[in-house]
Nucleic acid binder design. Structure first.
Lengths: 238, 238
DNA sequence: AAAATAAATTGACATGAATCAATTGTTATT
DNA sequence: AATAACAATTGATTCATGTCAATTTATTTT
């Protein structure tokens, strides 16, 4: 674990075809021989659809990084109301780097492959690898800007605008990781979309129907959408 | 700038009577002789009420840390709608550690004293001071959890619940930094509170009146509130 | 393939918060 | 101290989204 290895990470950063831009995924995005270097501090783990990775307020011991698949993180209120804080993609971190409690629950959407980092071991490792610490800081800063954007979406946008933003964000996300950005697939349910956007399932459905009848989107299936007129979507976001 | 200095920071962390818990304020919280060490990488700057520190989408060159006073950070939509992303306190960071554009505008609330860090110089400094990098990561992670909590407030809580959460958060914040947590002062206008909570000024005012007539709060002035019954406020948040 | 179960859509209606408008209270300015 | 300018409150009304209910479509299970 010489600091040399960490500095070399820079070169592998853009090699990953899953998470090119958002950050490298610590494990999958490294060549097999480099992967070995990280086996000291992370272990790989698999989850299936709807499996919980951890629950809000659990004592926090790990930081996770998505290798393959998607995760939803959500907060639950006492009376059962749920808010989905985020849908996460390959390369995204979740869990906790240092807090003693998880701030949300995390659940797999579909099949999931993640890297698990023990907080203490990672923390020690960062002392010897400032490049890695900075990279983690960079990624966390980026996630903070995404969360801040979502605050504006939930605080100021109406239903139609929220849906438009949501569709365009997914399209952008796909572009970022080098996938075709049209048609897009919605791996989550309508209820999940509603809980993510602070709306009800009925409102989500109605807004989709509006977009459909305006020929702005076209549904191949209810989870496969072709953005016929992305510019029209853009104009929703003022 | 030996890495020794950075490691020693740990001892000064809890000395500051402004920002004890949330993190140390890089400058003010250090003894005068230690302060000297940081003059290489940061400069102090003063602002007055309503002065802009930077504007959204400006090319980002600095990271800031509040020494004294408050800052509001906000996003502006094309049609003039505004969302206040956060009210910041002494010890809080804002600006950008590494992005090339600011994600929000920042404005002083009242008199403000901040430390300015040049991105490039800070970045280089972090390589030699992993403890500092980790501390910055820790603070950023913490701010991320706050932003995530706010997503739930804006996505799921009704007007009364948002106001109750807001008042309790301020009370907690004051407790954290060692001030009396009752009565609390609201340095911002009703419009600011509305723009922070995703409500209108009229709704904010009505909810305050409701709390007043239920004897849950008592207004010394319109900006000085005594929380007569904090437990009742708690029960709002389900 | 048929039946059963779950997910998504659509309609009718209710309601919380926004909007519009007027009034009162507070802080500057001369 | 009087006036002006601004901030906060209160009332009347509208409207976007939520709620409740029924129907259609899609996905499992047998």
């Amino acid at each position: 674990m010489s600091s040399d290895n960490a500095n070399n990470l820079e070169e592998y950063k853009n090699r990953c075809n899953i998470c090119k831009i958002r950050s490298y995924s610590f494990c999958r995005c490294l060549d097999d021989d480099k992967l070995q270097l990280f086996s000291d501090i992370s272990t790989e783990k698999n989850y299936q659809d709807k499996q919980n990775i951890f629950i809000q307020n659990d004592p926090a011991k790990h930081l996770y990084n998505i290798t393959e698949g998607n995760v939803k993180i959500y907060q639950l209120l006492d009376d059962g109301r749920i808010q989905i804080v985020g849908f996460l993609y390959p390369g995204d971190f979740f869990g906790s780097y240092r807090n003693n409690q998880y701030n949300y629950s995390a659940e797999a959407i579909g099949n999931l492959k993640i890297c698990v980092f023990d907080q203490k071991i990672l923390d020690k490792y960062l002392d010897e690898n400032p490049v890695l610490a900075k990279e983690l800081l960079h990624q966390t800063s980026f996630e903070l800007t995404l969360a801040q954007d979502r605050i504006t979406v939930l605080g100021k946008l109406n239903a139609g605008e929220r849906i438009a933003t949501f569709l365009l964000n997914i399209s952008e996300q796909r572009k970022r990781i080098g996938w075709q950005n049209n048609p897009i697939s919605l791996p989550m349910t309508r209820q999940d979309i509603a809980d993510y956007l602070g709306l009800t399932i009925e409102t989500v459905s109605r807004e989709f129907s509006n977009l459909k009848s305006s020929n702005i989107v076209k549904f191949m299936t209810s989870k496969q959408i072709y953005l016929t007129n992305p510019e029209a979507l853009q104009s929703y976001i003022v």
